[in-house]
Design a protein around this nucleic acid. Structure first.
Length: 445
RNA sequence: CGGGCUAUAGCGCAGUCUGGUAGCGCGUCCGUCUGGGGGACGGAAGGUCGCAGGUUCAAGUCCUGCUAGCCCGACCA
């Protein structure tokens, strides 16, 4: 993309309403625009990152065998009356009625609807196990939305639901979700620590939240320093292998890690003192096992081998897709702007032409631009007639991880400059070497 | 939902107390000089002062009502 033809409304000044870094930077980088409290338009740059995150979530869900579908945002109140949650959910549920006066709601989650789909089409134990998920907009009418997309009212969430014959099978689904979530976050360059959590209004027995450590996190967390050293890395885990998934779960949850909701001071005290950590965290996902809570109330049953009907064991598992943008920025920024991890960056590389209109500089930039495109990479070429300082400031703000600076001075010696946004370090090399270097970085991801 | 506050140009703000021609900085547009970290100078565009009603010769400013948004708390992915 050529910046002169793109739509990137960056702001030099900080909007008064934005309190925390991610909100401030998303507004300044022209990623979002607030339309009303807790509701945002996603401008091109923000939309691009949102889609990248969504894609990673899709890929990692399907890698472990979960099946995508799409349920509507608007739901009938009748389904929610069956589970009893229409009354239980309270004012956070946005209730509306259609022209016939039928009670509708903008879905805050989809347990009822997925259970309805399941009971209509699945009747035999032979159809299990089954895990369905979707990525869809949700609405929760928060009393006080704040912090930009971190706590909006409208938000994009991946929610998945497993249906299993037995509790053991359902616990395997639970462990498998944990594995897929760990890989999802790691691909985005985020460390999200699973912590024992409280089940809240969805209800249930086993539940873990995934928390990204950040000063602006909404939850206070307590953990054994050792948990931050555990990484999934490149290991190849068979999602259908019960023992493999369980051992990952055990490995990641054996050390103490809890949010303030479930914090147990006595247990925490057993952690060696020099490893007792207290911090703040942003919740970016949660997995639940809740057994037959919905299958019983809504009649989601299968006929077992013994010919008897039995309610299925379920769990639900969520990733806050839009919220992840906020978490990513909270975890990756400096005073100049955002620093995108390579896995989610809106553009792979920025090309800064220091002297637009100079034949040599223009030609060198064009060549770089086309080389990257030919390799399937997505460059952002700042071809505006701006001064160098302004171009650098924009690149730093929007946080592309790699920048190639092209100017007459360097071209005289046949070199351009490759700069890492994260380290700030620059290296001079020929344009060909620069393309090779950047291409290798993305090939290795 | 309790407490506090705000609403004036795309963004950040002054002007309101004490009523009398709508302002500043940034951004935008044009021109000149510049040209490796938000440069300088000159010119220009851009406003139903959140909405409705009232007081007044006259309302951004005073009064009444409403709406929206923000902050702290409680709540929450």
């Amino acid at each position: 993309m050529r910046l002169s033809r793109y739509f990137l409304p960056v702001l030099k000044e900080t909007p008064a309403d934005a309190q925390i870094a991610s909100h401030r930077l998303m507004l300044r980088a022209g990623m979002i625009r607030q339309q009303s409290a807790g509701i945002y338009s996603w401008l091109p740059l923000g939309y691009k990152v949102l889609k990248k995150i969504e894609n990673i979530v899709h890929e990692e869900q399907q890698r472990v065998g979960h099946i995508p579908l799409l349920m509507p945002t608007l739901q009938s109140a009748d389904l929610w009356r069956e589970s009893g949650r229409y009354d239980a959910y309270g004012d956070e549920m946005l209730r509306i009625s259609d022209r016939h006066g039928r009670d509708m709601l903008y879905g805050p989650t989809n347990e009822e609807m997925i259970t309805d789909i399941f009971r209509a089409h699945v009747g035999s134990y032979k159809d299990l196990p089954l895990t369905l998920y979707h990525i869809q907009w949700k609405f929760r009418d928060e009393v006080r939305p704040r912090f930009g997309v971190m706590r909006g009212r409208e938000f994009l969430m991946k929610d998945g639901y497993n249906f299993d014959l037995t509790k053991e099978d359902a616990m395997h689904a639970y462990n498998r979700h944990l594995v897929s979530y760990l890989r999802t976050y790691e691909r985005m360059g985020l460390q999200a620590i699973p912590m024992r959590a409280d089940s809240g209004p969805i209800g249930g027995d086993d539940t873990h939240e995934f928390l990204v450590l950040a000063d602006t996190g909404e939850s206070e967390v307590f953990y054994d320093k050792g948990v931050t050293d555990i990484k999934l890395g490149a290991r190849d885990i068979d999602p259908y292998n019960v023992d493999e998934c369980r051992s990952v779960m055990e490995e990641f949850t054996s050390l103490y890690a809890r949010t303030d909701e479930t914090h147990d001071a006595a247990e925490f005290a057993k952690v060696p003192e020099d490893r007792q950590m207290t911090a703040r965290g942003i919740e970016v996902g949660q997995i639940f096992y809740f057994g037959t809570k919905y299958s019983e109330s809504m009649g989601a049953e299968v006929v077992g081998q013994d010919g008897k009907k039995t309610p299925v064991h379920m769990g639900s598992h969520g990733i806050g897709v839009s919220r992840l943008l906020g978490a990513l920025i909270e975890a990756n920024h400096d005073d100049k702007g955002i620093i995108w991890p390579e896995g989610v960056t809106p553009f792979h590389v920025g090309i800064v032409n220091l002297k637009q209109g100079d034949d040599e500089a223009d030609a060198a930039c064009e060549a770089l631009y086309k080389s990257f495109q030919a390799l399937g990479l997505d460059p952002l070429y700042d071809d505006r007639k701006e001064r160098a300082g302004g171009k650098f400031a924009t690149m730093d703000l929007i946080g592309l991880p790699w920048r190639i600076t092209v100017g007459p001075r360097g071209l005289k010696n046949g070199v351009v400059e490759v700069t890492s946004r994260r380290s700030g370090e620059s290296e001079e090399m020929t344009p060909e070497q620069a393309v090779e270097k950047v291409a290798k970085i993305y090939a290795d991801l």
